[in-house]
Structures are given as structure tokens and as C-alpha cells.
Design a binder for these strands. Structure first.
Lengths: 246, 246
DNA sequence: CGGAAATTTGAAATCGCTCAATGATAGTGG
DNA sequence: CCACTATCATTGAGCGATTTCAAATTTCCG
């Protein structure tokens, strides 16, 4: 669904035709990955980033104890692997959480993108600040809350992201994420995630239906998660005044 | 020490005179804060970011349980509060960890900065990716490691940051951070941080000397922390080809 | 249908938290 | 200069949330 990706892209400000074509021009090749395949590996030299066209991509860091932290779920329209460009070797691995399609963007095209469409560059800059906000939120959840709050926050977060892509999605989430991966995201063990899911079910907050999860009481889940529901800026006045690239 | 700030700024690529003056032009006013004063508050509308000229600034998120997460320590040369520009209301508070001096940069000047010195804009973009890397590291530490590893990681992190500012700093760190704040950063309680400091001391890894901490065995601390020592890019080839703003 | 991956369950151990109190240090005002 | 106060550091005892280990069961995929 190319349309999903576009919907995400326009979240902050609608890109112009010129900006879209600059983005298209930066793409080098389309690549497909099967669920659980590694797209790029922690420690490898960084040459490219990936525009997610379809599917979910996870960003995962391994610490020397061998345990992994899932730091981010990239969805259609996201630019995956951007943080890696800051270091000589990739700080995180990218893994396909579902079957995915990505467009490869070489790092050097990225710099050109900033020249050719500098307003788009500034939009990417702001989007990166958005990502920092989400990371800080996740850090606060993992660092300061209980297991049940962390799992609730994980569910609420994914639901909110999906709602941006498909406002009509509703309360039933297609859930391709194993409990092991939820554990990696929430800083828990898979076993405890399992017990926590059951507790959420027992409390009547969620219902699991095969590979879907139904959120039975979103308000209470949000309350439990304690995540502020940020209002990301849209068409800010200081961007309107920005005259580059159009 | 204005020089400290400049050293941090030049870490990634040396700014031109034009870029420096554009940055100066973006600054609106200088402000001073005493230790523990709030510079800007979570939930308030966002109008400005802060260039740290001197001292340490903490970025802190409060979750609804009332507990706080210290997400970042800004040091001289850092742009504090940048993530807040992505949302209508500040997602985190900025607090003076020491007495600090900051230069206020209104958000709208920031967009102008991208126009006037677009190479500098791209440098800020890459610096933001660096911040994402550091945040993901912290998340991995908090999510996946034990208390002693987290505190070791905190120490190693601060030491590395200081070494960028003053390569000659050595192994004795001026330590203005209370154990309560370390706890907020590491996702622990202050009491447990205290016990963990004592354990690190017992193992001969650190020594506390009043308001300083001496790292007795940096290699073993790093090993314990398990944090990869990233090599951040310097003067990347794809920036050299970047022709904007000079 | 077979085998691997994911989920579920139980029992025991442990790491870090809570509660409660004491001691040290630094800043403030008289 | 000293008393006063607030903040920060330290210590002990007991508890509880989460982990670990071990194993059974279910689901998924070829």
C-alpha cells in the first residue's frame, strides 16, 4: 500500500510535488524481506537508509549480555536506519517484523535531498525530533513503570501509530509481534509478558483473537500506560515562512 | 567557558565563520539559572530552544505515577529542548543540574537558520541522529541490564561526554549529580543507587572523593556497562560534497 | 503430517523496592 | 559565627515484582 506511506509522510506538513519527486529520486532500489529477516546488521558500515513502503521494521540493539532491546517499530512512511548515519558502524540492527518492502536510499543521496528540497530537509529534521520524543517516552515507560504499565503502553503506542496510518482502523489490531519481541521492547522477559497479557485480559482491557488483539477499554489502557498523548505540530507557522526548496 | 561549547560544536565538522555568525544571530538573549531551577516545564507551549553555554542541563519526563525519568544530560555546546519543537506542548522539562548559562533561541529563528546556513542545518540534523543513538543506548541499558551495569553505564557515558569537551580531563569527574538524579536516569531508586555506588567502590572500580568521582578502572567499567563505544562520524564525504550555505 | 516456533504454566530464587530512621553536608539568616 | 533548615547520603529489615529454570501445550508453516 503506497498510500499508507504517503499518509504518514504528510502527517507533519503536506509535501509538494517537487519534494515528492526529490524523495523518489533519492531512492535507489526496492527490496523485499520476509518476516524475521535481517535488513541491516548492528556493527556493519553504514551506507544507506530505508524508506519503509510496506510492513513493519524493528530497530534492535544488542547489549553485551546478549539481550536485545527493541527501540523502535518503523511503519510505512518511516525512514528506518536514520540514526545509524551518525556513526561509522550501525548502532542497531533492522529486522523485518512482518514481510516488508523498503526503498533503499544511499546516505549520499540524503545530503543531496537536503540541497534539492531544503524544506523537506527541515521536515525530516522535525520528524527526527518527533522520534526523539517517542524514544524518551519509551525510556520513561521502561525506566519508571511496572510491567503491566509497560505492556499497556506498548499496545497504546502501536494503536496510536496505526491510527495515524488508517484513522478507520478501530480497536482491533493485527498483531504480528511475538511476546518475545514485546519483551525486548518493554524490558521484560517473554514469560512475564505472557502473564501480563493474561492479566490485561483478566481485567477486561484486551481480548486476544488469534493473531489480532482487541482493545476493549482504550481509555483505561491509556490511563494505565500513563503516556501523554502528544499533539505533534502540523503546518507550524515557522515552516510556512520557510522559503527553501518549493 | 565559551570554548567548551565550541569544542562540542566542532565535533562533527568544523563550522565556517558564516555558520557561526548565523548561529550567533539566532540567539536572542542570555539567561542564567541556579542549580535545580527549572528552565522550561513539561506541558508548557514551546517557543524556544536553549544553547548551553556553561553548566549541565537535564531533560526530565514525568510519568503519571509521579516518577521522573532523566532522559538526557545536555552539556556546553548542546542544543537543549530541540525535541520539544515537534509537539505543541513540551514533552519534557529542562532543569539546571548545575548553575548554568544558556542562550535562548526562538523556534522561528531555528527555521531561518536552516535557510541561512543550510550546511549547518544538515549538521544539526546529523547531530540529532547522534542524540537518537545515545537515547537508544540508554534505553537498551535501562531495559536490559542490571542495576550495577546501569550505574556503570551512566558513569562511563558522562565520562565520555566530558572527554569530548576536555580531552585532558582524566579519570576524576566533578560530580554535581545527586544519587536521586542518577536513579532517575538509570530507572532505579535512589537508595539502590547508593548501594550500587558502594558496590562499585567495594569492587575497586570507583572511588568517591567528596563531590568528585575517580574512575579507578575505566576498562572494567566499560566492560561492565556493555555500552558500545560508538565512533561518531567526522567530516563525512557526503558532507564535503554539500554545497549549501558556505 | 511433522517439526519448529510461540505460548502457557508452575515453583523457587533473587534483585531491587518500600518503609523507616539516622547521619552528613551545605546554604541561609540572625 | 552559630543555629536552623533543607537536601543529600547511608543503613537495616522485610517484602514483592519479576526472573529463572523446567516442562507441557498449542500454533504455525512447509
Amino acid at each position: 500500500m503506497e498510500t499508507l506511506a504517503l499518509r504518514r509522510l504528510s502527517e507533519f506538513a503536506v509535501p509538494t510535488a517537487h519534494e515528492l519527486s526529490a524523495l523518489e529520486g533519492a531512492k535507489q532500489a526496492r527490496r523485499e524481506f520476509r518476516r524475521n529477516q535481517i535488513i541491516s546488521r548492528q556493527g556493519d558500515p553504514v551506507r544507506e537508509v530505508y524508506f519503509v513502503a510496506e510492513g513493519w521494521v524493528g530497530s534492535s540493539l544488542e547489549v553485551n549480555s546478549g539481550r536485545k532491546q527493541l527501540a523502535k517499530i518503523y511503519m510505512p512512511g518511516d525512514l528506518a536506519g536514520l540514526p545509524n548515519i551518525a556513526t561509522t558502524r550501525a548502532t542497531s540492527s533492522l529486522v523485518a517484523l512482518t514481510n516488508v518492502t523498503v526503498d533503499v536510499i544511499p546516505v549520499k543521496n540524503l545530503a543531496q535531498l537536503f540541497e534539492q528540497a531544503s524544506r523537506l530537509g527541515f521536515m525530516l529534521f522535525v520528524a527526527s525530533q518527533q522520534e526523539r520524543v517517542l524514544l524518551m517516552d519509551q525510556l520513561a515507560v521502561v525506566g519508571q513503570t511496572s510491567a503491566i504499565q509497560r505492556v499497556a503502553a506498548f499496545l497504546v503506542h502501536v494503536h496510536r501509530r496505526l491510527t495515524v496510518l488508517r484513522p478507520e482502523a478501530g480497536l482491533v489490531i493485527d498483531w504480528p509481534i511475538s511476546q518475545q519481541r514485546v519483551a525486548e521492547g518493554a524490558g521484560l522477559t517473554a514469560i512475564h509478558v505472557n502473564r501480563t497479557f493474561r492479566e490485561l485480559t483478566r481485567r477486561g482491557l484486551i481480548m486476544r483473537e488469534g493473531k489480532k488483539i482487541r482493545l476493549l477499554d482504550l481509555a483505561q489502557l491509556c490511563e494505565l500506560a500513563g503516556l501523554p498523548d502528544h499533539v505533534f505540530i502540523r503546518n507550524p507557522s515557522w515552516l510556512a515562512g520557510y522559503c527553501g526548496g518549493v
